[in-house]
Amino acid sequence: MVPVVHELADCLLEIEAELRSLGWWESRQPCAQSLASSQPFCVDTLAFEQWLQWVFLPRMKALLEQAGELPARSAITEMAEMAYMEMPGRTVTLRRHLKRFDRLLERHGQAGA
């Protein structure tokens, strides 16, 4: 059986690949002020896909690489559903990967409890 942390790492790669496939992967990082938002998911300064690329993916990859403490729960699926409610067909694969990430994170949290 593959350890959950390896599955989480694979899922992060799938999320990145899907962002690239959708044409939403950016080569230029947003300004520091946009990244420093105090709002959840930087909703006031970034599009959700920007937040995924510039905040979520780097943070999660760093936690996995450093064997840091992962959150026990994530609301990323709910946020994705809200962010992409106007384009459900186009984002179905991305949302599926994010839902898988949430489930794996929850499973990891239960295993550690």
Rank of each mutant, 00 (worst) to 15 (best):
E49V: 10
F48C: 03
H97E: 04
S74K: 00
H108Y: 13
L57H: 09
D102E: 15
T91K: 04
E69V: 13
L57S: 06
D102L: 02
L19T: 03
E49N: 09
A75Y: 04
V55S: 05
S38Q: 09
K99Y: 10
R96E: 10
R59L: 14
M79R: 15
E86D: 15
L57R: 03
P40A: 02
E106M: 07
L64G: 06
S38E: 04
A75S: 14
F101E: 02
R95P: 02
L57Y: 08
R59W: 05
A36G: 11
Q53V: 09
G68H: 09
M82C: 09
R73G: 07
K61N: 07
H108C: 11
R20S: 11
L70Y: 06
V43A: 12
Q50K: 12
Q29N: 05
S34V: 02
T45F: 04
R28C: 04
Q39R: 10
L57N: 05
R20A: 11
V5D: 08
E86A: 15
L70P: 01
Q39K: 13
L63I: 08
S38M: 02
L35G: 05
R73M: 15
H6P: 00
P71G: 12
P58S: 13
L22R: 05
I76N: 00
Q66I: 09
E14Q: 12
L104H: 01
A72F: 05
F56M: 10
T93N: 05
L19F: 11
F41Y: 14
W51K: 07
L63W: 02
M60W: 07
M85D: 08
L70K: 04
